[in-house]
């Protein structure tokens, strides 16, 4: 027992990973792990699993809020730009209409909103999920390639305050996984 603890702690670990053959046990395991207090955990599946994001404690997505603000900024900017051009910078009467002919500004306003919102969505998504990422420790596990085929993985990361190499391994093993593997950093 004592030696086991020492050996495990001597090897630097990224985390422990359990593999499952079906999505349902993974979902149950993720719920258990979250209720046990683990927070630094991630699940890897070959297809979307209903409720999994919820189970690992994913609550809300900050990207959507950034996108909303960017959309508002884009709309205000687009409208402001059109207003500045037509009313302040180049005040020309066209077709007898008032200078501030706002219906004509709407398409540009809409396009600027979409432009800024889309850029923010793509760049914000990449910035916040850490992609592109040329190296990730989970690929050190040999069988992990099956995450894109027919296996479901749950990884509890060593950075979790509740993580303990021995206790976490024992916890994962009682969840009835196919296998529990150490993930080298």
């Amino acid at each position: 027992m004592l030696t086991e603890t020492r050996v495990a702690s001597q090897i630097e670990l990224y985390g422990l990973m359990a593999s499952f053959r079906q999505p349902e046990p993974l979902l149950a395991a993720a719920r258990r792990a979250h209720s046990e207090g683990y927070r630094h955990l991630d699940a890897y599946t070959p297809m979307p699993v209903e409720g999994l994001a919820d189970a690992i404690g994913f609550r809300s997505n900050a990207v959507s809020r950034f996108v909303f603000c960017a959309g508002l900024t884009g709309a205000a900017g687009g409208f402001g730009l059109m207003y500045w051009i037509s009313v302040i910078a180049y005040p020309h009467i066209v077709a007898g209409r008032p200078l501030n002919s706002w219906p004509a500004y709407i398409p540009i306003t809409f396009e600027c909103m979409v432009l800024l919102a889309c850029f923010t969505a793509v760049i914000g998504m990449l910035a916040m999920n850490g992609l592109p990422q040329p190296y990730h420790p989970v690929f050190n596990v040999d069988s992990f390639e099956r995450a894109s085929r027919d296996r479901f993985f749950l990884c509890i990361e060593a950075s979790d305050p509740a993580f303990d190499p021995v206790r976490t391994r024992r916890f994962l093993e009682q969840l009835d996984p196919e296998e529990v593997m150490e993930v080298a950093p």
Partner: peptide
């Protein structure tokens, strides 16, 4: 079957 979950939108 439940419909596929959408996470973000």
């Amino acid at each position: 079957e439940a419909p596929r979950e959408t996470v973000a939108f």
